[in-house]
Design a binder for these strands. Structure first.
Lengths: 129, 129
DNA sequence: TGTTTCGTACGAAATTTTTTCTACCTTTGA
DNA sequence: TCAAAGGTAGAAAAAATTTCGTACGAAACA
């Protein structure tokens, strides 16, 4: 029984990530709920979402409660852990692992508002204490 | 002649991003050089890299100088601009556009070293002035 | 001058990811 | 009770991405 086995996580594909995001927002949900939410963003068929979620359950990305007819899907791994992992990968591949380079980019980014910058600064200030 | 036409950028796929990263590092290069670099990371055929780079040139992600027999490929869009765009997309999709949430995650991330944190702090300090 | 080496082009195959079709089961309500 | 609505499953199709095979031209060199 190896600890790493649980940790090992397949990278989610693009559409899988979309579904994860919906589940992070809604919490454990039926396929119907997830699909309704996705429909707000794009045109997608119910069975497509169903299939995707089944695949994700197979991979272990999602878990499901089959005790009811309407299966309830939930995310297997902690949201923060998954995000941390994806962020880490992003920093690695885009900034050679340098988090400060990323922050620098963020600061220079026109799309990052003054308010955001203010919050980041306060965040760091708290960290100092 | 619409300004947006130049800006419109197709999202690079995973392998396309790998090639972009090599080109960012090496600067304008031949397929051979890029492939040699990729070989350090993974097993890949010369013609595969060639094909990918041709596709990228077709899409406008890369430009090439065909005046010599060995074509020289270079990245069409500025590195920082592309990275800013990808980072922006990442923040949007993963943190609902909140850059400070991302930084918070970064700070809590075990894989972010103390030294990195220090650098980030100094960065922010400079920004204050 | 051959022949070996290194380059590009292009089509097609292989793989991965996404979408759809169809069958069939369960619940609900007329 | 039976039809309609809503659910799952699985095979297969479609689309996107990645990889490879082959042809053929140019350069290097024995």
């Amino acid at each position: 029984m190896n600890m790493k086995d649980q940790n090992k996580q397949l990278e989610p594909t693009k559409s899988e990530l979309e579904i994860l995001q919906v589940l992070w927002e809604l919490g454990p949900s039926t396929v119907r709920s997830v699909n309704d939410e996705l429909l707000k963003q794009k045109d997608v068929n119910y069975t497509t979402t169903l299939k995707l979620m089944q695949i994700m359950a197979d991979k272990g990305i999602l878990q499901r409660d089959e005790s009811q007819m309407k299966h309830i899907y939930s995310v297997a791994e902690d949201e923060q852990k998954t995000k941390a992992h994806l962020l880490d990968k992003f920093v690695d591949s885009m900034y050679k692992g340098s988090a400060s380079k990323l922050v620098m980019q963020l600061i220079g980014n026109k799309n990052t508002s003054q308010q955001e910058l203010q919050e980041i600064k306060e965040l760091l200030k708290k960290l100092e204490e």
